[in-house]
Structure formats: structure tokens, C-alpha cells
Write a protein that binds this DNA or RNA. Structure first.
Lengths: 193, 193
DNA sequence: CAACCCATGTAATGGGTTACATGATTAC
DNA sequence: GTAATCATGTAACCCATTACATGGGTTG
């Protein structure tokens, strides 16, 4: 049995947890999983066809108040593949892409003032992320797991804000026109040493 | 002046902070920025050529103890582009991809026991990440910004471990064969409500 | 009757990784 | 001498996003 792709497991998982039409999966992907695992429509719909053809899922046309839609179910094969993945100890993909951190990494030659401006931008970004996730909370419905992963996101951004707050407090003690590299060297010695 | 690509800014930043050969950039990308911004050789070397052609950087052949290598410098144009990017308030790209969280999201139907097994796997992953970053610390050299972003990584993973520890402690109070969805519903009510 | 949501898809494009390819130098 | 590191690059492939395309139903 060959390994399935990541979007395939997303689709299988969506069906198993009650998001049974392509559209419902698309909504959940945007609203509930986007903040830790992005999945686009351009992956979902082709994947539904592929998993159908391969016998992991079956689709049935259903009239939903006049509008037609296709509602999918897992086959035994699909259920087995999902359970395998959910319980596998295989190394899970983990990746962070943070352009703000990348800027910090190259900030050596900036002034303390400029660095603090960047940090403020990053804090704002995390604050907006929290607001956004807070807005999504009512939409998590009765799904305990959706609430859980949402809470992780909220706590993660809160951690980052806190981290930058503490860094900024240290930088506030330094002269604004000092080279950021110098100021950070002194601060790092405190934090780590 | 057209926006440059992300790998382009990586290259400009690397030069500005003293990583002036393609190989040195490649090393730093693997050792110091990989954990928050991945950049592969397949991006670096073509980018060096493109930025040279566009007049952002200039390369000079240099004999480094017999071996030849190309050492790059920023032109005024390149320095300006980098400074723009470093000080721009434009929304920075931020993205998390965490397959472990994705599994948690779909864990509703697992048993508490199975869920706890997954959580243990995730904690192990974060612990390994910390070990890995700890190994890299000596290599950060005198670069205060490298130390800073490394520290962020360490603290971030420590946060996650702590978060899962607390979740696991709650789950340990529930019967192992209970449905994860049920157990989490009860726990979520405590945490959020 | 216009705007928005439900619903499904495709094609072009862009971004990034991996594997491959080469060769010199240095350390054991 | 052989393994690792220094050093530079290319090509094939995979993955994912974006934009486009279509059309029925609902709400203000």
C-alpha cells in the first residue's frame, strides 16, 4: 500500500469528521486548519476525484434544497488509510516560515530604533492573528478538536507577543541610535549567560 | 523599482552580514535560518546570477588558499533594496505547517490512549528540535542576531512542549478508552470557559 | 436586482526541493 | 588513500496558489 499525499489525508480526515462535500472541506480548510496547515481548492477537488478513482472514498449526488452537491463517504480502504496515518509514529512534517524573523536575522546593522519599529510590526501581526482566530471561535461548533487546535494557535501567538514584549523592554533601555548588533550582544549575554 | 523575491532578499541579507560566497550562504541557510525560513541551494546559486545581472550585487573571483571562489558585494542599488525591505512595514509572510496539529484536528474518533500516544510523538519532535538548535548554538559565532533568532526557536519549541504537557496532564485524568472528542470537550470547557 | 453564498472544477504559473554533476582541497 | 568539507551549479519534478470559469440559490 503506497503512501498517500498530505492533501489526501486532509480529505480523508475531513470526511471522517463530518465535512463530507468538497465545499464543506474547502470552508473548514480556510476557517479551521489554515493557520497550521494550508489547503487550497486546487488541491481538494482534484484529490476527491483521485481518491474516488483509487477506491478510498465514494461520492453520491445529493439534492440539497434544489442545489445539487456530491457527498462523500470513506470506504473500508479509506478508513484504514486514515487510521494508519492518524496513529503512525512517522515523522510529521513541521515547518515555520516567518519573514519577520528573517528580517531580524539580518538586522545587525540597523539602529535600535529601526529594530524596535520592526518588532512593533511583528507584534501587531501576531495581535491581528489572535483577533482573526478569536473571530473563528464561534464557527468551531461542537468540534472539540477544532477548539483545541484553535486554542493552540491563540496561545502560540500570545507566546510570540510576550517574547517580543520582553525583547523590546530590554531594547528600550539602550540608546536609540546604537547599532542593533551591539545592543543585542549585551542583551543576549543577559538572557543566555 | 520592482519587488524582489524572497530568496533575493535572503541573498542580499547574507552578503550584508558577511556571508559573501554562495557556499557560505548555503551553510548559514542550513544552520541558522532553516528553522524559520528554509532556503535551498537550488535557489541561492541561480539567485546570485540573477542579482548580478540586475546590478544588485557584484561578484569577484578570489583565491581562497588555492581553491577559487566567488565573493559578492552589494552595489548601492542592492544596499538600497535590502534597506527598503528591512524597514518596510509591508505584511511579512508568516506560515506554519504542522502535520501533528493536523492529526490532532482529525483525532475526534480516536481513543484517549491513542491521542496521548500522538501527543507524546509531538513532544518528542519538539524535544529533538531543541537538541538540534542547542547543537547549533556554538556555530552562531559573534552574530548577535543569529543568537536572537536561535533563542526564539528554542523558546518556541519549549512553549509547545509545555503546552502539550499541560494537555496531556488533563487527558491522564480521563479513562484511556474514552472517545478523544468527549474527553477534549470536557477539558476545553475548563480551559476556555 | 444586485450582491453574496453555495458548489464544483481547471489551467497557468510560481516556488521550492531533490537529485545529479563536477572537481579541488584538507584532515585522518 | 579515502572520507569529509569546500565550492558551484543545473534539471527534473513536485507541490501549491491564483485566477479563471460556471451556474443555481438566497438575502436585503
Amino acid at each position: 500500500m503506497t503512501e498517500l499525499s498530505k492533501p489526501a489525508y486532509v480529505v480523508l480526515g475531513m470526511i471522517a469528521t463530518g465535512r463530507r462535500s468538497g465545499y464543506a472541506m474547502s470552508r473548514t480548510a480556510k476557517e479551521a486548519t489554515r493557520h497550521f496547515w494550508a489547503t487550497s481548492d486546487g488541491q481538494i477537488y482534484p484529490q476527491l476525484k483521485a481518491l474516488s478513482d483509487a477506491g478510498y472514498i465514494t461520492g453520491e449526488r445529493e439534492a440539497q434544497g434544489g442545489r445539487e452537491r456530491v457527498v462523500y463517504s470513506l470506504t473500508d480502504q479509506g478508513r484504514a488509510a486514515l487510521d494508519d496515518w492518524l496513529n503512525s509514529g512517522e515523522r510529521a512534517h513541521y515547518e515555520l516560515r516567518d519573514e519577520g524573523l528573517l528580517r531580524l536575522f539580518f538586522a545587525e546593522e540597523l539602529s535600535v530604533e529601526q529594530l524596535r519599529a520592526q518588532i512593533e510590526i511583528m507584534r501587531r501581526r501576531h495581535r491581528r492573528a489572535i483577533e482573526h482566530l478569536e473571530d473563528l471561535r464561534p464557527r468551531a461548533g461542537g468540534h472539540a478538536c477544532a477548539h483545541l487546535t484553535l486554542q493552540y494557535g491563540l496561545d502560540l501567538h500570545a507566546f510570540s507577543i510576550d517574547w517580543y514584549d520582553r525583547l523590546d523592554a530590554e531594547l528600550a533601555e539602550r540608546p536609540p541610535d546604537e547599532r542593533a548588533g551591539e545592543a543585542l550582544e549585551a542583551i543576549n549575554a543577559l538572557v543566555i549567560g
